[in-house]
Amino acid sequence: MKKKIQNIIENFGLPRIIIFLFLVLLFILTPFVGIRFDTSINDIIVRFGMNGILVLSLIPMVKTGCGLNFGLQLGIIAGILGAVISIEMEMIGFTGFFTAIGIAIFFAVIFGFLYGLLLNKVKGDEMVVATYVGFSSVSFMSIMWLMLPFKSPNMIWAYGGSGLRTTINTKGYWFHVLTDFLKIKIGNYIFFPSGTILFFAFLTFLVWAFFKTKIGTAMIVVGSNTDYANSCGINVDKMRSISVILSTVIAAIGIIVYQESFGFIQLYTAPLFMAFPAVAALLLGGATVGKASIKNVIIGVFLFQSILTMTPSVVSNIIKSDMSETIRIILSNGMIVYALTRITRVRT
């Protein structure tokens, strides 16, 4: 029995168990601190839809052994480009939403291609290089947002100065087009954002299906065992590049869905640290540096977003001050440090 428990802890990971127990505690506490249970659930579902695709975008790169994509910001930048260009073009509703995605994919493929080239040159050090590629591209784009000749009055500063605003409202363009699509209302407090969830499910299906094809299979082989892949005649670098492009494209779509649901496009330094919560969510779902599945994405996003939703309300009610930011920092970064120190090699 004791051994069995030890085994479970070993497999599941101590931090994950602690977080899970913490979450259970939060749920138990909700009624006692006077928070509506149903609104909390609703928040969690909405946030799940908002963030799910960003986390999903990490999967291809982990599968080919490129590690956790700390350069997620490249995809986000492509997404933002798509979003602001579609608004500049005055595209509204679903047309606007899909135009944004189309343009975003275009940029994401280019960025992903270059990013992939770089990551193939630095095998073994992908993660640290990716982190700083992400940071520097965000800060480079900050300059660009100031300088690019956007004209739409809804996006540039009202009082004359050049450059885009720090946040751009998607209301009037494609705000909640997905969220409100087939939306189901349950009572006064709960609604189910069917459109967002369906879209997430659709992309998840595409990713799953992709790994059933010849190329997808080859990518799994590369990630499982590079030597084996070589001996099968698989072009390892090419497969890695494809996975990087794929990850970047999905991230670009992910941020547009996020903006659609959130209501704002955040520019400048806002995307700087967006990679970490996504990575933390995936790890929380049971992934490791070398192994991740769609199951990990769904469990991870659910757990992570639950905690982010519940802690501020519950904890603030207990200690009368907002600890949520601190808890978020400890939780997400602690999860990543933990994963990095657990050296799991595919080969034994």
Binding site: M127, T131, F276, I327, I329, I330, L331, N333, V337
Partner: peptide, 14 residues
Amino acid sequence: MVTGFMLAFFMNGI
């Protein structure tokens, strides 16, 4: 390096 970097973030929370 990447671990040290994340560790710094984590300890910032602590």
